[in-house]
Design a protein around this nucleic acid. Sequence first.
DNA 1: TTGATATACTGAACACTGTTCAGATATAGT
DNA 2: ACTATATCTGAACAGTGTTCAGTATATCAA
Lengths: 225, 225
Amino acid sequence: MGIKERQERDREAVRRSILDAARELFVSEGYQNVSIRKIAERIEYSPAAIYGYFPSKDDIFFALAEEGFRLLGNPTDAATLGTVEPLDRIRAIFWGLYAFSRQHPQYFALMFVDRAVPRITREYERFTFVQDMKRHIVAQIQACIDAGSLPAALDPTVACRLLTMAVLGAAMTRLSDRLSRAENADELARDVLNVMLAGLQCGPPLQSTVVECPIDDVASHARVS
Amino acid sequence: MGIKERQERDREAVRRSILDAARELFVSEGYQNVSIRKIAERIEYSPAAIYGYFPSKDDIFFALAEEGFRLLGNPTDAATLGTVEPLDRIRAIFWGLYAFSRQHPQYFALMFVDRAVPRITREYERFTFVQDMKRHIVAQIQACIDAGSLPAALDPTVACRLLTMAVLGAAMTRLSDRLSRAENADELARDVLNVMLAGLQCGPPLQSTVVECPIDDVASHARVS
DNA sequence: TTGATATACTGAACACTGTTCAGATATAGT
DNA sequence: ACTATATCTGAACAGTGTTCAGTATATCAA
């Protein structure tokens, strides 16, 4: 009695074909230019049929974001095996993150930058890949601390976040094509990573230097002079 | 014969009211939720009337982005007057950039993150404010170098870009609400800035350390395993 | 084989979106 | 009063995500 199984397999096949069509359009055209009707045309179904497999367009791209994290996960793992010097491992990991933003800019934007798919923001903690990667990176940073390559006072989780933010900033700047015409974007990304690592090595005053101008939310809706 | 003048004044008034309505909707609802029809309703005109003042929706938001840069410019100037220690000035300037992303998140996203308004990317060099600010910041960094607070080997324009990327990364991370639930976002932003400044002080190896895994564009359209 | 039931799919519609354009309206100059 | 010019509107076009009544198809029970 394998009928139910075959039906389920068929369903899964259609589901996958939807994701395949969505991904192809998404990678080549970007999120903005993918419509339900285009996906439907590609898989030769009616637009309404798609809603039998995904409750909304957002959920299709949530699934694609999951694929993105899977895609990012592998090179990150591979990067740790190459080098011996622990600090170079960190460098390789975060350079891998930047490289990912170059190889899969659409995925990168979907995963880290765009807010066009609310579910990605809303259920971000569901991407267990991120948690795993974070843990992995934190462990590598801890290894650096143990090896004396980074100061003992450093909180590895904080360091992980700082490095991530800086590298994402470099990647995003290239992606949004502002503040630097893209020729030397790679060198700048490499530099920002190196400077961050150097700064972490120097034993930074992580809790010193009270900043002068605090954030006052008063002028939040101020008019332009 | 001030008729032509009065007509022109009227035109300008309507133009401004369009921008005002657009800004109000934009600041409170975000770019995605501003439609021509909503703007039209707010100023009690027909939707089509707007196209007598702006050739497209993009151009309205291009104008708003200009306002954003004006808005960002002033506090940046003010920050330089406060402190005496040159390095603290740099810190204050870039902290001002982060503070701007908190006070005017919609403006910030429009100016630096979103790619929904192609004209902002396409004609980015038209924002002369950015050029002026950049020059101003570079001069301040040069002052740091002259005062011995930063190493002489440092290229001030590169340093400016690196700091900008890192701070934008911190701001964007908070904005897209990923990688750190927003409670301690301010501290992280402060830290990333401090670490970058520390790294720049340490005399970073800006051209050393060839990174292991280069970017190969081959797998650009790779499928998920 | 027949009838009942569940599933899958479609066509049409709804309420939106940015944008265009012919025509109406009102003002200015002669 | 008549023309000319500028301005605004209503309607429409092509597109979007999404819903739903209805149809076709396939499975199961008799």
